[in-house]
């Protein structure tokens, strides 16, 4: 394990591990826009042709097939692989003294998450996580308003997020049942549960978790839980249809409403009056948050910044994800069984 001294005159050397859709649409555009960063970037993908094509598209000079071949040559690694590979690959980099920015969800279990956090500490490197939604101005505003007690004591939480699955996945990794049987909860739930844990800073206890997995990956999931000791919460997620797509946090003296994919505004209802809080934003598209995430990671490596979201920040939400899967029950789906012979 070694930890190299890095300064502005010597930009960090980064490995982008995994050249799938998130690399193409989020990280690579950010690297191209960050001065000097792309010249020190190495692309890694087990599919050599994919890495080669991405390198050509984004003007990156260096690409390899196996991350282990460059592990001692980089200062930081961005792990943008299917979620079931996050733990193993991230641990390899952390053990080698390489800072890591990992895609969400950081891991599949609380134990894995804790091991990763501990390994980062032992190796004196940082472990950052791309839970992008914490960067949304709307969600930062929700956090601020809750902290200031603007709606009083929260009395209920209800969030629905759904839409037909349209992620342009290059590998279709979610749909290989040999890899994992974790779907929409692991995907969208990793964002939503992270927000709930961050906003309320309280323990979540699961009352029930249901989904529609028949041995494969769930496409619809519903979680009924308590925030702290008494605040009821409900989350419904879908890959199959559009839901209401809003989050309603009711408090004793007011209500906050925001939308999962809208980082520009929050509605506040007080005394029966609704006010829309429009937030100044620089980001036009979701991918614009990539600049902030990549910039922060480079700053963390250069010891100029703290992680926007660290591994430690997501321990609680990953633990909730894991508990959901441990307690999963299937919805009663009358139409599914109806035609059976």
């Amino acid at each position: 394990m070694r930890c190299r001294s890095i300064n502005d005159a010597d930009p960090p050397r980064i490995a982008l591990v995994g050249c799938g859709a998130i690399a193409e649409s989020f990280y690579l555009p950010a690297f191209v826009q960050t001065p000097f960063a792309s010249s020190r970037l190495t692309l890694v993908d087990i599919n050599h042709k994919r890495a080669e094509a991405m390198a050509a598209n984004f003007g990156i000079q260096s690409y390899v097939q196996n991350y282990k071949s460059i592990i001692s040559d980089v200062d930081g690694a961005i792990v943008a692989l299917p979620h079931q590979l996050h733990y193993e690959v991230t641990m390899d980099f952390l053990r080698a003294g390489v800072h890591v920015l990992c895609e969400k969800p950081l891991a599949e279990t609380a134990e894995q998450t804790s091991s990763m956090v501990q390994q980062a500490e032992r190796s004196h490197v940082s472990l950052c996580v791309n839970n992008t939604r914490r960067l949304f101005p709307s969600f930062k505003k929700v956090k601020e308003l809750l902290t200031r007690g603007v709606i009083g004591k929260p009395i209920s939480f209800h969030m629905e997020e759904g839409g037909e699955y349209n992620w342009p996945t290059a590998s279709g990794f979610y749909f290989n049942s040999e890899n994992s049987n974790h779907g929409v909860l692991m995907d969208r739930g990793a964002h939503v549960l992270d927000l709930v844990c961050w906003w309320f800073d309280s323990e979540l206890s699961i009352r029930s978790y249901m989904d529609d997995s028949f041995g494969g990956v769930e496409a619809v999931a519903a979680l009924d839980f308590l925030i702290g000791e008494s605040t009821p919460g409900f989350i419904k997620l879908s890959w199959l249809s559009r839901l209401r797509n809003e989050c309603v946090i009711q408090g004793e003296v007011g209500t906050l409403i925001c939308e999962p994919q809208n980082w520009r505004r929050v509605s506040l209802i007080e005394d029966g009056r609704s006010t829309t809080i429009r937030l100044p934003v620089d980001q036009r598209y979701f991918s614009d948050f990539g600049l902030e995430i990549v910039g922060n990671f480079l700053g963390v490596i250069q010891e100029r910044e703290l992680p926007l979201v660290s591994g430690d920040d997501v321990v609680e939400s990953i633990a909730v994800l894991e508990k959901c899967y441990q307690n999963r029950q299937r919805f009663s789906l009358s139409w599914m069984e109806a035609g059976r012979l």
């Binding site: 049987n181 028949f214 059976r340």
Partner: peptide, 26 residues
């Protein structure tokens, strides 16, 4: 799959249309 009639090989044009059948280990 549910009726155990066959070993199903499910062909999709795009991965993005696999969410429904991905619920089954086919």
């Amino acid at each position: 799959h549910l009726d155990g009639l066959a070993k199903v090989r499910a062909a999709v044009h795009r991965w993005s249309s696999a969410a429904r059948i991905g619920r089954f280990p086919v």
